[in-house]
Each structure stands twice: as structure tokens, then as C-alpha cells.
Amino acid sequence: MDLDFSPVIESWRFLLGGLELTLALAALTVVCSLLVGGAVGLGRCYGPVWLRVPLVFYIDSMRSVPVLVVLVWSYFALPIVTGVTLPPFWAALVALSLQISAFVAEIVRAGVNSVRPGQTRAALALGMSQAQAIREVVLPQAIVRMLPAFGSIISITIKDTAIAAVIAVPEYMNRSQTLAGQSFRPIEVFLVAMVVYFIILFPTTRIVDMVYVRLAHLGRS
């Protein structure tokens, strides 16, 4: 067994471009998911019943359908329904955000519920409005407690972007496949891919956890 990494080294620009796309897709997905998922989570906790029922349905549906299915559906089937063909990158952004938002919404709900109801009641008893109680009392504690879970959302998102290779988004996973096919050196290409993903993913949750240890006291009650 002799390994020859020269095809990987020669194509480093090609792979680096893929890595940039992976990180860009992950970053955009995280931002979209935090916004959408945050809104969905709060709507589920505090919204009226007619809003809560469809939101719960959306969240549970996304928890039960694989990312791959959502990706493939938004790339191949959505254009047939809407008549708008999204380029692979944007189809992947839509599909991944749809999935990750549901997870964010669940985290938001768990965080909000972890703040004891007595706190909200005390805030209301002090004459605060419902919105004030949420904004001033519940959310500041809840957000700190959600931090570790948001850290894992970032690494889940980066891992899920690799699935976007299936709809030909030229990100790192997809380019590795291309290179493996062209160079006939799949072992070297995929070994390097494993190292690259590990180097990105391993510190991600660690850094968020370290930030959380610093801030954890703010979430105590």
C-alpha cells in the first residue's frame, strides 16, 4: 500500500475553493436558521393557537424527514411546482435552513421552558407587560443557556453541508469526489477530507463551550 498525495497537493486551489463554499454555505445557513428558527420557536411558545399548530407541524415534519430528501426535493421538485429553478447553492441554502431552523426552534423552546414560570409571574406581578417579561427576564437567561446547543448547531450545519454534494453544490465534499474520480486516488483524497473536516469541526463546539463556561453564570437563576 503506497500513498501518493501529490494529486491532492497539486489541486489545493480547487479544494480550497470548495472549502470556502462549504464555510460560506454553513455560515449563511446558520444565520438564516437562527433568524427563522428563533422566530418559529418564540411563535410556538408565545403565539396564538392558530399559529402554534402549524408551527409544531412544521417542526415535527422536519424532524422526521432526512436532510437528503429535503435537499433533493428543493432542487429537483420545487422548480416543477413553482417554475423557479434555483442554482444548487441557493437550493441547498433553502433546504438546509428549512431543516436547521426546526432544530433551532426546538432549542429556543427548551431554553424558554428552562426558565421557571415563577420568574415570568413575578415579572408580571411587578407590572411588566408580557413582552417586557419575555424580553427583560426570560430571554436574557434563556439565551445564555441555549449557547452550548447553538454550538452544536454550527457543527451539525457544517456536517450537513457535505450532503449538498448530492445536488452538485461544488463544496468541499463534492470537489473531493470529483478529484477522487479524476486522479484515481480516492484513498488519499478522502483521508485528506477527513482531516480537513475534523480540523474544522473539532474546535467549533469546543470554542462555543469555552465561551459558555465564561458566560454560564449569567444564565443562572
Binding site: A162, A165, M173, A180, I187, F190, M194
Partner: peptide, 23 residues
């Protein structure tokens, strides 16, 4: 544990597919 929790599953699948038979 840390290795496999920090790799995309789809990559592990490809790697198993190409690396296991050859090595």
C-alpha cells in the same frame, strides 16, 4: 468518539466505500 462525532456521515460512507476494500 471524537473522530466519528466530528466527521460528516456522508464522508465516512464514501471513505468506507473506497478505503476498506483497498487497504
Amino acid at each position: 468518539t471524537e473522530l466519528f462525532r466530528n466527521l460528516p456521515l456522508i464522508l465516512v460512507i464514501y471513505a468506507a466505500y473506497y478505503i476498506m476494500p483497498l487497504t
